[in-house]
């Protein structure tokens, strides 16, 4: 069973479907043949965590259907293949970004599996803390990536979990400053936010606001489009209709920026309303090159999980000391930087 699970998690995932169908088929098969499968069980026991054995690192992601997280997972898998002697990697994702219950269940499964470390991109910055506390109690090294856990809740729980990742607020501020440089003081702008309960959505909104306020822009509307392209398209259309002098749309991710660009085009205001995004996904790059999107931020998504894994391995070797956070770089991407 364990081997099957490991195989599955290592399979180059070309999608959630293969994994899900595969998992169902193989697991039901394995359960059915369980009692007879003595060899398999024997091998699994040999591989259990022992002194001197390779540590097993569990990477728990949000939705692997999201390009941002799938590229993160691919980066981690590539890293593991480069250093196969140092550790074993288990990658798991949840069905959609807000499926908290499934992520908590994954944490518990990984603890039950006795992994050495968990590197997690939390679906919620508060609700996974109790499960992670139990994991730490079992001696698992826990590293937080992507979406930073809530400091207050961590304090209440009496634990500290190091965060390895970018400062989203700083990144969004950089994007906002690049935009402000081409606007005039007093221009009307609007913000399209991500899921409002998510920490990184809040940080990006704050970063945009920082830059806009510092440059004296007028924020006429700020609404959530739940990270989704089509929703952003509708919200942006409504914002454009309502605010005839709108000069820019600041979108908290690139999918929403794509939707906003379509809205600007639909309203016949190409060139009058500027759009900026965040994440630097592949689909946005053509738009940055031809000027339909002014700027985005690259937080090196493909490397984020690797940074977390490196931190976990370092702590496993050094005895998990120190709880300092580690900030990873965020770069501004404009037409110039893509040349």
């Amino acid at each position: 069973m364990k081997e099957i699970l490991k195989l599955l998690s290592k399979t180059k995932s070309s999608g959630d479907l293969t994994r899900r169908i595969g998992l169902c088929v193989i697991l039901s098969f394995a359960v059915a043949c369980g009692p007879a499968d003595k060899n398999g069980k024997g091998e699994a026991t040999d591989q259990q965590q022992g002194e001197g054995a390779k540590p097993e690192v569990a990477l728990i992601m949000k939705s692997l259907a999201n390009e941002f997280f799938s590229s993160m997972a691919k980066g981690a898998e590539k890293h593991q293949q480069e250093f196969p002697d140092q550790y074993d990697l288990l990658v798991n994702g949840i069905k959609n970004e807000t499926d908290l219950g499934q992520q908590v269940a994954l944490i518990e499964q990984m603890v039950a599996k006795k992994v050495a470390a968990i590197v997690i991109a939390p679906a919620d910055s508060k609700a996974v803390v109790p499960a992670l506390k139990r994991a730490k109690k079992e001696g698992v090294v826990v590293i937080n990536i992507d979406n930073q856990l809530d400091a207050e809740v961590l304090q209440q729980a009496g634990i500290s979990i190091p965060f390895v990742g970018p400062d989203n607020r700083k990144g969004a501020r950089k994007v906002g400053e690049a935009l402000a440089a081409v606007l005039k003081k007093g221009d009307e702008v609007a913000i399209i936010e991500g899921v409002q309960t998510a920490f990184n959505a809040k940080q990006r909104k704050l970063g945009f606001e920082d830059a806009m306020k510092a440059a004296g822009m007028k924020i006429v509307s700020s609404q959530s489009a739940q990270w989704e392209m089509e929703k952003a398209n509708r919200i942006a259309s409504a914002m454009i209709s309502e605010n005839v002098n709108l000069k820019a749309l600041l979108c908290a991710n690139d999918s929403m920026a794509l939707g906003a660009v379509a809205a600007v085009k639909g309203a016949g205001k190409m060139g009058d309303i500027l759009v900026v995004g965040f994440d630097n996904i592949s689909a946005i790059q053509a738009m940055i090159k031809d000027g339909r999107v002014l700027a985005t931020a690259d937080q090196h998504g493909g490397q984020l999980a690797v940074y977390g894994i490196e931190e976990a391995l370092g702590r496993l070797a050094a005895g998990n000391k120190g709880e300092a956070n580690r900030e990873t770089p965020v770069d501004l991407i404009t037409a110039d930087s893509l040349k």
Partner: peptide, 24 residues
């Protein structure tokens, strides 16, 4: 609902494909 969504992720490699003017 699950199968078709899985199929969509499978054929696109889980990433948004920008087509541009040809489809607009």
């Amino acid at each position: 609902l699950e199968i078709a969504r899985g199929g969509a992720y499978l054929v696109t490699g889980s990433s948004t494909k920008y087509i541009g003017a040809a489809v607009e």
